[in-house]
Design a protein around this nucleic acid. Structure first.
Lengths: 201, 201
DNA sequence: CTAGCCATGTAATCCGTTACATGATTGG
DNA sequence: CCAATCATGTAACGGATTACATGGCTAG
């Protein structure tokens, strides 16, 4: 009962922000950019989350904020992690995420695929295959940019792991698409044999 | 501008319900059960969604509802799809889902992995590996149960495709886990060499 | 008789996105 | 001067989960 405070589920965005503070990002704006550019393949954040969280973290003593307002500089709030904030982050990092219920719209559509022409299903799969290909190319470009960078960041090996994850999953999906397209073609042949054979309408 | 009605984004739960109506499921309760048992590997639904949606669909003429209330039977509402409902479903089925921004907590943690002992990261990965194994076994059991069933359902080939998807992705993840564990071990060796070599504290 | 399943429903709450409002600074 | 970028923030909305309330039927 009294563990409710430690056990209470906090929004994951909170820890994304703490993590970015821990890598020295100072402004909400910079964090949003960082998510878009570097974490985009497995995470997203909106200003509507970031700014309120930043304010909260300061209230809770997990971060500090000093306003930069000297002449000839943009108005900006400079945040930094406190030791307590670091502890909070690490405590979260070591907990295995509980598996979250997935919602894969593509598979939901495919489950009901019998209700539409086979060709429609084939289109769904081809589109998904294209998405996979684009993602794989995108991940590859991020990866090579990261490897070419001269002074290597201490986080680099971990970043590479996340990139490998994306590639592995996307490639598996692409293979699945190919197999599935073959199966759909078989179904199509089956339809031509059993129902009308060549009749329009 | 005037396409707003057809284009307007509707909650996906709505179509999950329409789909289940199309396969003859009659009550909200049965739908919840079906999601849990048969779609659990890629979808989830809660009563808090299902019942309000069912009411709405009737209001919109996409479903009908007749209350079964003869003596000696449980009180239940029997829903069925109308032709308009079938059209709505099919119109949705043929549209490729736009890629939804993922939020993979495991990868978020791994990105910040440098902030905790390597052993903690290894534990994260091992746990995930276990999850993959459990899922693969679970999918296999569903699949064999489905294949063994005598009278084959017209939707069966599509169900098998969704199962293959789950297996393909989970197996790819498992392979990634193995590779990642190796890399983490290398990192661990590196630490031992550069920093204190065997010193406690 | 009672535990467990069938069955329906709602209110509170949460997480998160979207859209908007505002404005300073810098580079071309 | 103007467009792009840096920068902060909030209000409204939406989708979804959680927790709760209720009750009848059935099998052991």
């Amino acid at each position: 009962m009294q563990a409710s405070d430690r056990t209470r589920k906090r929004p994951r965005s909170r820890y994304a922000v703490l993590g970015m503070l821990s890598m020295g990002l100072e402004t909400g704006y910079a964090m949003k950019k960082h998510v878009e550019v570097h974490l985009g393949h497995f995470w997203n954040e909106s200003y509507g989350q970031i700014y309120p969280i930043l304010r909260q973290l300061v209230e809770e003593g997990l971060a500090t904020c000093q306003v930069e307002q000297q002449a000839g500089a943009r108005r900006r709030k400079c945040y930094a992690l406190t030791p307590a904030g670091g502890n909070e982050l690490r405590a979260w990092l070591v907990q295995s995420p509980e598996p979250q219920p997935p919602r894969l719209e593509l598979l939901l559509k495919l489950t009901f695929g019998e209700r539409v022409p086979v060709e429609a299903c084939e289109q769904l799969i081809r589109d998904h295959r294209e998405t996979c290909n684009r993602d794989i190319a995108h991940l590859a470009s991020i990866e090579s940019a990261l490897r070419d960078k001269p002074g290597r960041h201490p986080d680099q090996p971990y970043w590479l792991m996340t990139l490998r994850y994306g590639r592995a999953v996307r490639e598996a999906e692409r293979t699945w698409c190919d197999e599935t397209l073959e199966q759909l073609q078989e179904i199509r042949s089956g339809h031509q044999l059993t129902s009308e054979s060549g009749m329009g309408r």
